[in-house]
Nucleic acid binder design. Structure first.
Lengths: 226, 226
DNA sequence: TTATTATAACGACATTGTGTCATTAAGTCA
DNA sequence: TGACTTAATGACACAATGTCGTTATAATAA
């Protein structure tokens, strides 16, 4: 409803046209709001320009003044989501201390965010199959996690916390596991329960990286220096 | 080219209309061939009824005598794929003997089939996002593996080979891992190398189910009775 | 407040794809 | 070959996209 409308006029640092361009910002925000709302209760495949503009009061063709197509709207929404998810994943990706505990912290965060934004993330993943440009954007989003995960694994390998194996394919696999399991579980109402999902993911990540002896625990005696 | 044309006239056991319905079978097969070929070199999103019928010689509207829409074609193709993949997965799902060895056998088979059919499987997964009916068919296909995997895990748990945890969410997770990792790696040319993918998947499956101490080996001393 | 001007919104149009239907053509079998 | 069943066709209605020239409405300066 108001998610984007609230932020409709970003702080303008520019010199002259101080509040000259305000109306357009509000319309743009209205379109994003409309898409946000639409996605909450419909699959992405049912989204049309008409369906979005019906909710904004303005005519359909006005849409094209702000976005070149529906996927460009999704791209704008993805940017919003990106920060939220990446933040949730931080503990294990960059944190210091017991890596098993960090792992649980990260998965807790991811499950929480994805539960809350489920249908939204689902829509992103769906939209990625129908447009080359957005497919690339989505892929790049996922690759960000591959890079960060690979770095963390390699760093832990240097410290002897994780056995020596090629880090990237495992990091990629585990990220794909997260992404699509979370989309599957929370992407459509009724959403599944959080607890079994969290536990399954934790078991797989911990067993694979730190050893199955820690799979039942939320902490370990492994410690990360530096 | 000839994948379906060859099989165009299935052995008819029926009494009277022996070769009465032949022409229609050939056209249907031509459409399936056309779709099969199309998918090999184009993303699913570019497939149109026109693009398929151009390759068959017959006019566009004839398509609707055989299929109600593009997704129904995909459904027919999915059935073909289904057997191939399920067969490849059999060793671990139903086999007897060292489960780690069986696991490797199954993953080898899956990687081989998915490498060969990559763009094809990718198209299935893409098509599942754009049509409710086909989405259900695809989901049911995946659920088949969830059921079989869950059964195998529970059975191994009873024998003490796998620790006691809720089997289904882990089975689901690991299947999602396979499906989307294989699609990601082999779904578009140039396809990635098979070896790193195979190894990453094996590491994750084995560590999670049978313990990370077996992750480096192709066999174990665990044995399955019965 | 009003005039000026930038720009947002509109509606009609061309285009592409879908799915239907009455009609025509072709194939199958006696 | 002729009868007649069934496949193929092309025109049509519909839905959605994206463009463009025109109109209406903001914001600003007098």
């Amino acid at each position: 409803m108001s998610y984007f409308t609230k932020l409709s006029s970003p702080p303008r640092v520019s010199p002259q046209p101080l509040s000259r361009v305000i109306k357009s910002d509000r319309t743009r925000a209205a379109i994003l709001d409309s898409a946000f709302e639409f996605i909450w209760s419909h699959p992405f495949r049912e989204m049309t320009v008409k369906s979005l503009m019906n909710q904004t009061g303005t005519g359909r063709s006005t849409f094209y003044r702000y976005f070149s197509d529906l996927h460009e709207v999704m791209e704008a929404l993805l940017e919003m989501l990106q920060g939220e998810i990446f933040t949730a994943a931080q503990p294990w990706l960059t944190g210091v201390g017991d890596p098993v505990a960090l792992m649980h912290e990260t998965l807790d965060g991811l499950v929480r965010v994805c539960y809350q934004r489920g249908p939204f993330i689902r829509a992103m993943s769906d939209a990625a199959t129908t447009d080359k440009r957005f497919e690339d954007a989505w892929k790049q989003f996922l690759e960000g996690f591959d890079d960060a995960g690979t770095a963390r694994i390699e760093s832990d390998q240097e410290q002897g916390l994780i056995p020596d194996f090629p880090a990237r394919p495992v990091a990629t696999s585990l990220n794909i596991l997260d992404a699509y399991m979370l989309i599957e579980a929370f992407g459509q109402r009724p959403r599944k329960q959080q607890e079994p999902v969290r536990k399954a993911l934790a078991r797989i990540w911990v067993s694979t990286l730190y050893g199955s002896e820690w799979a039942e625990h939320k902490t370990s005696t492994l410690v990360r220096k530096s």
